[in-house]
């Protein structure tokens, strides 16, 4: 069933359109940066955006910072919200269940397909933005001799140097962390997808949760609930680019997402297992 779900995911033209759009955003930003060479003022704009002007090899990190807050969660919520509800609307859910595919297996396969999508999308963004960065912004080889200068707006100590190999490792860590964060989004949308037959409704519900969480994170009055909000630690991956790596928020963020995934999957399972399939 898992291979079937993956086949279905990668045979969907829609999925490639979403990934292409995700890759397009950093590309457009890179065009403006490369032609004008105007960095955002310190403390404003996306993370890493001024740093990439001196070294394009950091551009994947900047690209992730661009797509993470809105674009990527929207894509995940739309696809995950569609996972069960879309099958119900299309009339294929009942044929899968009488095949028979166990309801638990179906849920797990859907979640694994979501993980595959997130990994594929992030990998596509990283690869295309690396190429864009290196080709359009240059690696700054002449000034730094190939080593990567960690940007002062991220590190507390400016001028830390890391080798390209270590940069790749830190990017891998980033990809892993963002995947876990998006898994939380996918779990919310998947749970809602078992509640309703409307894919749009499930995606909308997941996005409403995220937007609410994003607003509360910036609200001082909501201090007491902040550590439990799903988006609270989303940006913790930036800590991978500090020297030394600051693990505290990364660990908390990952732990929090695992709790969210476990609880929501449990709820989705309990609901779906006993549900009448009327579609």
């Amino acid at each position: 069933m898992i291979t079937v779900e993956l086949a279905k995911l990668f045979k969907r033209p829609r999925m490639y359109v979403i990934v292409a759009l995700l890759c397009l955003l950093p590309f457009i930003v890179a065009i403006f940066l490369a032609t004008t060479r105007i960095p955002p003022p310190p403390g404003q704009g996306g993370a890493f955006l001024s740093a990439v002007l001196s070294n394009g090899a950091l551009y994947p990190a900047a690209a992730l910072a661009l797509v993470l807050p809105v674009f990527l969660p929207v894509a995940v919520a739309v696809l995950a919200g569609d996972s069960i509800a879309g099958e119900a609307t299309g009339g294929t859910l009942r044929y899968l269940l009488i095949r028979p595919v166990g309801r638990t297996r179906l849920l797990v396969a859907k979640l694994i397909a979501q993980v595959a999508f997130v990994l594929f999308a992030i990998a596509a963004v990283v690869v295309t933005s690396y190429l864009t960065g290196v080709l359009m912004l240059g690696t700054g080889e002449s000034t730094t001799g190939g080593v990567v200068l960690l940007p002062p707006d991220v590190t507390s100590l400016s001028g830390d140097l890391i080798s390209p190999g270590e940069l790749a490792l830190r990017l891998l860590g980033t990809i892993g962390y963002i995947t876990i964060s998006m898994l939380g989004v996918a779990a919310i949308a998947l749970f809602l997808s078992t509640l309703t037959d409307s894919a749009l409704g499930a995606a909308m519900g997941a996005l409403a949760t995220l937007v609410t969480s994003q607003v509360l994170v910036t609200l001082d009055a909501a201090e007491s609930v902040k550590p439990y909000l799903p988006t609270r630690y989303w940006l913790a991956w930036i800590d991978f680019f500090r020297d030394p790596i600051l693990w505290r928020d990364i660990e908390r963020g990952a732990g929090l997402q695992f709790v969210y995934v476990a609880v929501l999957l449990g709820a989705a399972w309990a609901n779906f297992k006993t549900k009448d399939i009327g579609s």
Binding site: K11, G91, T92, L93, R94, L96, I98, P100, V101
Partner: peptide, 30 residues
């Protein structure tokens, strides 16, 4: 259920895939 072939109300299929691919997906699913 593996011994039953069934059609419930309207037939269900993935519209963007061919008929053969549809049959193959459902066959592989269970």
């Amino acid at each position: 259920l593996p011994l039953i072939g069934a059609m419930v109300e309207s037939p269900g299929a993935y519209g963007h895939l061919s008929g053969r691919t549809n049959l193959s997906i459902f066959d592989a699913a269970g």
